[in-house]
Design a protein around this nucleic acid. Structure first.
Lengths: 340, 340
DNA sequence: ATGAAAGCGCTAACAT
DNA sequence: ATGTTAGCGCTTTCAT
């Protein structure tokens, strides 16, 4: 009796497979007494339905995929937590795929998932806007998907993002009010929508407060670590007076922090930094950094909820013209010591 | 032509399904010319084999599960990265399950996985040693699994852990050499093997350096946050002279850090802290903390490699009496400022 | 080198 | 209320 299956279970009970199957699914066709008997023996013999047989038959996998650029950012860990909390409740399984920020990798993963392994996908895009054929294939195949954090705005899919414009504006306003005179925006790339929205907020705030344009610096540090160190270092020498830096990502803020140590710039006396950060620990421990924290767990939850809604609605006529687009706000943590 | 399948593909090619299947699997029975034709059309029509059909038929899922207590620790994120790097290479899929440190949850997940959904499982145990029936069921079912980080030593399964004893010894030695006179060990629970090994290392170092036993303090702070804050606060008032704290987990070190701020204890002047930490950022940013960093990525990799080896060897006669037990070392980061 | 056919375990439409 | 049966899409044994 190596592996239990519904056939053996049925034989043991002197019932037909279909009766057993119905009983296990609590069908109204089966009388209570039979159900009890079936459930009891199933439990006793430790019967577990084969998930692949039922997936094959029902054409549904009870599984979703999460496709993310990196997991070793606390942000994505928290998002996965949020996703898992919903999936667990709905008895769905969660597959993780990591693209390592390589667009081709993402394409490959998404293309693979066209095979029906999952009922839906949550994506934080690693791609640039010029490549979205694979998303369209998902649409064509009828596989629901939801973007979170990094959305591709050329694709008609629900999105869950943070209000990066607002956060950028708020962060910059904070620097302005802390008596900064020069303002720098540290960017990873001008291809990432979230980062660009942060920049837009940054620029809008500076404009509203009528900051002299020559005092505004946009630093494209890029993703290569050695290079970005050099670019930031070059920018800081010579140091603009009363510089306020808004770092669009934590990594660049930390690099800046190290460079300042290296070339003896005092934070926050000579230089103020405010950065996005989803490492609560870092934010709490380091007195030199004001941070913008994204509601990562909620993003995961919201995205999962939207996805499950789409999965449920699949096939139904959907008169939705405007796709759901959830925008959540970041939280600004200001440390006292950033005041000059 | 909604969904491609092997039947339609075969019809299109005027071949039988079996020939097509063999061609797709590069069987030696099929001549090169035919293979090419099949592959070409498969690509053109974007044919993707149904994973559930083949899983059902082959009784293998090309999927592994990772069961962890929490994902929002950087440690586990890094481990997953390591796991994913191997799984990706071997074209395996990775399912994530989070137990939230609830042993019953872990049991439930493991029991569910007895249904064959995965070919193997990587577990960081949330359970106490008195409950391991579910692990034995895995053994019975022949589902390979590997423990990482938190192992259950009563179960005969491969383990990948860090040398916590050695790390504990090293950390404590560092405190001793920094002229500390009193020594405290901050523990979450005395039920977790890793933490206990750290404690053993701590005690062994103190013994070797002949530290007066009355100067040794074991603080069981527990997992409840409010409670642990209170327990640590109580311990620090009044403050033992030249206290060196070895925190078995980062969370308690951070709590201690905050309490010190709150009740005006100067770190590292009045109090030194050394802690396990897998948040490189925190370690880099905070000058008050010396840290022990676990080789998380390698742990994930090693664990995955062991698992895939077990999966491969399944069914074969295995004369292994001593199970593989990989022990990796943590890295000690000492910040200058912790020297008094 | 290719094909026919059985069957993995389950579900559901259709009897009875 | 219960049973019979076809078939989901694939792999594989056994012909040819």
């Amino acid at each position: 009796m190596e592996n239990m299956n519904i056939k053996k279970l049925a034989k043991e009970l002197n019932l037909s497979v279909s009766t057993v199957s119905k009983a296990l699914h609590d069908s109204y066709e089966i009388k209570a007494e039979t159900k009890e008997k079936v459930l009891a023996l199933a439990k006793q013999l430790n019967y577990q339905p084969n998930p692949f047989a039922s997936s094959l038959r029902r054409n549904s996998s009870k599984t979703i995929a999460v496709v993310i650029p990196e997991i070793a950012h606390n942000f994505f860990s928290l998002v996965i937590n949020g996703i898992e909390s919903i999936a667990e409740e709905l008895k769905y399984h969660v597959l993780i795929y990591i693209t390592h920020e390589i667009p081709e990798k993402e394409e490959q993963i998404i293309r693979h998932l066209l095979n029906g392994r999952v009922d839906g996908i949550l994506i934080s895009s690693s791609g640039t806007s010029n490549n979205n054929a694979h998303y369209h294939e998902l649409v064509q195949k009828g596989i629901p998907f939801v973007f979170f954090d990094r959305a591709n705005f050329d694709v008609d899919a629900p999105r869950v993002t943070t209000d990066d414009y607002q956060a950028g504006f708020q962060a910059t306003e904070h620097l302005i009010k802390s008596q900064c005179k020069h303002f720098a925006f540290l960017s990873l790339s001008n291809q990432m929508s979230a980062i660009n929205h942060r920049k837009d907020g940054f620029l809008a705030a500076l404009k509203q407060y009528q900051i002299e344009p020559s005092h505004v610096h946009i630093i494209e540090a890029g993703t290569d670590e050695t290079l970005s160190f050099q670019i930031i270092r070059d920018f800081l020498q010579p140091l603009p007076v009363s510089l306020g830096i808004f770092s669009s990502v934590e990594k660049l803020a930390i690099q800046t922090y190290h460079i300042c140590k290296e070339i003896d710039i005092m934070i926050p006396k000579q230089l103020k930094i405010i950065s996005f950060s989803n490492l609560p620990t870092a934010a709490l421990l380091n007195p030199a950094l004001s941070t913008l924290t994204q509601p990562a767990f909620s993003i995961g939850k919201e995205a999962a909820l939207l996805l499950f809604q789409s999965i449920k609605n699949k096939g139904k006529i959907q008169p939705i013209t405007t796709l759901p687009n959830v925008v959540l706000k970041s939280t600004l943590f200001i440390r006292e010591s950033t005041k000059m």
